[in-house]
Design a protein around this nucleic acid. Structure first.
Length: 296
DNA sequence: GCGTCCAGGTCTACC
DNA sequence: GGTAGACCTGGACGC
């Protein structure tokens, strides 16, 4: 039996700005229906054995969430939606800093900066690995393969993100041949096995007391996580000290602030240094402004 | 059709 | 600590 939930949103929150503000909406199990302004996701219960297809839409002051069945407890779905859309993030400090900058004032005005993320750090970590050293098209393909080949099905056939155990149950050859992950394959095996066995608990990174520099070291101890991947995951954890520079972000910076010419990373870092612990979010908003202004 | 380049990098070896 | 070379895939591009 279908279920409909209502989740109140904080003042200044904008559903579509949040969804469009990070490319994650384009990666399975997310599906974004631009025409209907609906974000779909396949939720799972805590055990990862039951799934419900969900459809999220924005209304003034609230989110409406429709579920295909009651397989997943409502409280779990509400928690996941709040996490995905960062309803509990306090953005005031960042918006105060953005309002002091002419070029970022718009972010505070429209409520940008709540980077869409997955319900679990594990899912975000694997997706981040899928973004390294490849085109966005290949990232989409690898993520789609992971969901289709290792995720459980909800009513209606939509698939959920695979559990660490499911990902640990297949070998390197599977990742190479079925997921098309190439040289990343052993990294997936090692990470999934470590998480499934409890050796690594990525969810604990969300509320870690470690300073960001120490947490970055811990994340980088996972094979496949270098500077970019670690900083990108830290952003999704809510820590914006790092810029998470990749070739795309660099190219956008050259285009916008260096007359199209390459420049050292140090210059980029200096450009955003004034934002302190918010610099990672500042560069992201600055480089993605056209997504909100012109559409994608 | 074919070869090359490169894209939302990382690891290892070496200096 | 910095650098070079290897590593997979697949789309874009030139010929």
């Amino acid at each position: 039996m279908p279920v409909e939930l209502s989740i109140p949103t904080p003042k200044g929150f904008d559903f579509l700005t949040t969804v469009r503000g990070h490319g994650w909406y384009d990666l399975a199990p997310f599906r974004f229906d631009e025409a209907k302004a609906e974000l779909r996701y396949t939720f799972t219960d805590a055990s990862g054995r039951k799934a419900s297809a969900g459809c999220i839409s924005g209304r003034p002051g609230e989110l409406a969430v429709r579920l295909t069945n009651r397989s997943v407890p409502e409280a779990k779905v509400v928690r996941d939606v709040r996490h995905i859309l960062r309803l509990d993030d306090d953005m005031d400090e960042f918006y105060d800093a953005a309002r002091r900058e002419d070029r970022l004032h718009w972010a505070a005005d429209i409520g940008a900066g709540r980077l869409l993320r997955s319900p679990t750090v594990f899912e975000d970590a694997v997706k981040t690995m899928c973004t390294t050293n490849c085109s966005w098209a290949l990232t989409r393909k690898m993520v789609e393969n992971l969901v289709e080949k290792l995720g459980i099905s909800a009513t209606g056939g939509s698939k959920a993100w695979p559990t660490p155990a499911a990902m640990a149950s297949v070998d390197e050859a599977f990742y190479r041949e079925e997921i098309r992950a190439g040289y990343r394959s052993p990294y997936f095996v090692e990470f999934a096995e470590a998480v499934a066995s409890g050796e690594i608990d990525p969810e604990s990174w969300l509320h870690s007391d470690l300073p960001t520099s120490e947490l970055r070291k811990e994340i980088k101890s996972v094979k496949g996580f270098g500077d970019y991947a670690a900083d990108n995951l830290l952003k999704l954890l809510g820590r914006y000290d790092g810029l998470a520079l990749d070739s795309w972000l660099r190219a956008k910076f050259y285009e916008k602030h260096a007359s199209g010419k390459k420049c050292p990373d140090k210059r980029i870092a200096k450009h955003y240094a004034k934002f302190g612990k918010w610099q990672g979010l500042a560069i992201w908003c600055d480089m993605t402004e056209y997504w909100h202004v012109e559409g994608r």
